[in-house]
Computed example of a mutant assay.
Amino acid sequence: MENTIYTTKEIQERVDQYIGQFKEGYFSPLSLMARLTEETGELAREVNHYYGEKPKKKTEKEKSMEEELGDIIFVLTCFANSLNMDLSDCFHRAITKIETRDKDRWTKKDDLHQ
């Protein structure tokens, strides 16, 4: 497997190049939301197989959590691109909110360099 590191900008550009080949273009936001829900369900199923009480049937196809997370990243990127949103900006807004709102919510480690 290729071990390339992509920036969010590169991810968005690569997805846009891929989708841009097709006349249909991006799905509507509602369809993308349904697709994201479907992919999240597939990740939940894999987590349940690996960490839960529900082992896979012998007839079930082998998938990985990495594959399912990748599918989620792809659909999220399609969502952002279809709405002309920058994923880096979306992440910056989220992490700033979380770092501010939750800065005293959790027990800090004594030495952050452990």
Rank of each mutant, 00 (worst) to 15 (best):
Y6G: 01
F79E: 02
D104I: 09
K56C: 03
E67A: 10
D110C: 01
R93M: 14
K103G: 03
Y51I: 07
Y26M: 08
C78L: 09
T37V: 11
H92T: 06
Y26E: 03
N48R: 12
E60G: 04
F79P: 00
Q12R: 05
D111T: 08
H113G: 01
Y51Q: 07
S82R: 09
F22I: 04
E53K: 15
T77E: 06
T100F: 01
D102T: 12
R93F: 07
C78T: 04
K57A: 11
I98D: 12
Y26I: 09
E38P: 05
E67F: 04
K54A: 13
A34M: 10
I95L: 11
K58Q: 11
Y18C: 09
A94F: 15
H49D: 03
F27Q: 06
Q12N: 02
N48H: 04
T100P: 01
E24G: 01
S64W: 07
F22K: 10
E39A: 13
D102A: 08
T37R: 12
I19V: 15
G41S: 13
T8E: 04
A34F: 02
E62A: 03
W106A: 01
H113K: 01
S64P: 00
R93T: 13
H113R: 02
L83R: 15
G52I: 12
S28F: 04
L32H: 05
R35H: 10
G41Y: 14
D89M: 10
I11V: 10
T40P: 00
D71K: 13
G41A: 15
Q12S: 01
L76T: 10
D111H: 15
F79D: 00
I73T: 13
Q12W: 00
K108M: 03
D89R: 09
P29W: 13
E99K: 15
D71F: 11
F27S: 06
K54L: 12
I72W: 12
L30V: 13
R14F: 05
K108T: 06
A34S: 07
W106I: 02
E60L: 08
L83K: 15
T4W: 06
Y50C: 03
S88E: 01
A94G: 04
I5P: 00
N84M: 01
T77V: 11
L43C: 09
I95M: 09
K57F: 09
L87H: 05
I98N: 15
S28C: 04
D71P: 02
D111N: 15
T40C: 08
T4R: 15
T4N: 12
Y51D: 05
I19A: 04
E67D: 07
V47T: 02
N81P: 01
R35F: 03
L32F: 05
K97D: 10
H49Q: 15
E39I: 15
E99A: 13
I73M: 10
D104T: 07
E99S: 10
E53C: 07
D110S: 01
E38D: 11
K57P: 00
K56M: 08
E66Q: 11
R14P: 00
E13L: 11
K63M: 05
R35W: 03
P29E: 06
D89E: 14
